[in-house]
Write a protein that binds this DNA or RNA. Structure first.
Lengths: 190, 190
DNA sequence: CAGGATATCTAGCGGTGCTAGGATGAGCGT
DNA sequence: ACGCTCATCCTAGCACCGCTAGATATCCTG
């Protein structure tokens, strides 16, 4: 029966390889370059093997996105923890969020703009996603006032998301990024 | 020489038909349904004709987006003009922006998320796009304070864009939309 | 060692955006 | 009015996409 164990281990390893290949390829050349054929070549198996692990390309992208949620949550937590005061925390967390989107554009897209069939109902995603959201919530809490904390958090998040996506798509000049970020931070920390 | 005039008229008319077909098809079934083959069938010409008018599908989408800028600018202007006071103007303009995105999702996508090769350098786009941007700027001007008006406007816009896109992609609950909009408006009108 | 289940691959389907090259027809000069 | 030229348009096809059915090879079991 140990053979079965080895099989499962190899299978899990291969699944990991698929997600890693998708992530690396997306980071290097963008999601358009991530095709099932290239992915299959990368892991040195044939195309149909992908479909024995994932229901389709979307599911692979979703798996990549899941990794991103953990990384983002960690970045936000770190920024908040090392901030001197609540006001600075808002600025630092906002900067960390924007920096993450800049550093991992493909990952950010998979998380927040492309993949839709994310397993929102599963265990893992809500965990890491909720961790990131909770970091944002704790960051703005001191300045929420009478407003509903969840609404304030979601709105703050939307502001960050808007800034990031509009800049990345060339609709906002990159040069004024810091100025805009400062405006957003100011509006949510007083 | 009148034949040439007629030719050019017919050609312009056909170009209009292409853009209209793309717009209608996108509004009805989403941009995924807009293929060059369906577009060609719609205007009752063969596929290659499209490429004698536009450099590619992206250019067709950009042309559709241009129409959208005018409509959005008009909606924002109307909302601002009929507002009782500056504070109400911010709320009304924000609501008008969100309503536009809800009413014309495919158009909104073409304008702000998908098409990238928009002729930002041309005449037409900056006109209507700038009109919309100017409406936003005038709306938030009374509350800009010492901050750079352009930065405030762009940040306000980003907030609206983020709210709209995150909700449309299922990341934000639709039920709390008004509450979030109120938070954003509050943060930019005091 | 034979039989059967399991894992994997080859080949292909229907679709995409886009283009090369040939047919067709309208306008021109004579 | 005729024949030629040239612009216009279409047919056919390329290379690619995500995905899948059926054949093949590989491994474990009795």
């Amino acid at each position: 029966m140990s053979t079965q164990g080895r099989r499962e281990r190899e299978r899990a390893e291969r699944e990991r390889a698929i997600v890693a290949a998708a992530r690396d390829l997306a980071l290097a050349e963008g999601w358009d370059a991530v095709t099932t054929r290239r992915l299959a070549a990368e892991i040195e198996y044939s195309q149909p093997v992908l479909y024995s692990h994932f229901t389709g390309k979307d599911a692979i992208m979703a798996a990549v996105a899941v990794e991103g949620f953990a990384e983002l949550a960690a970045a936000l937590a770190s920024a908040r923890a090392s901030a001197a005061d609540p006001g600075q925390a808002v600025a630092d967390v906002a900067a960390a969020y924007a920096a993450f989107a800049e550093r991992r554009p493909a990952l950010y897209d998979a998380m927040f703009t492309l993949a839709v069939d994310l397993p929102f109902a599963s265990q893992e995603v809500p965990t890491d996603l909720a961790r990131g959201f909770a970091e944002l919530a704790e960051t703005v809490r001191p300045f929420a006032g009478d407003d509903d904390l969840e609404a304030v958090t979601e709105t703050f998040w939307s502001g960050l998301h808007g800034l990031v996506t509009l800049m990345r798509s060339g609709r906002l000049r990159r040069a004024d990024h810091d100025r805009r970020l400062a405006v957003l931070v100011d509006r949510f920390s007083r």
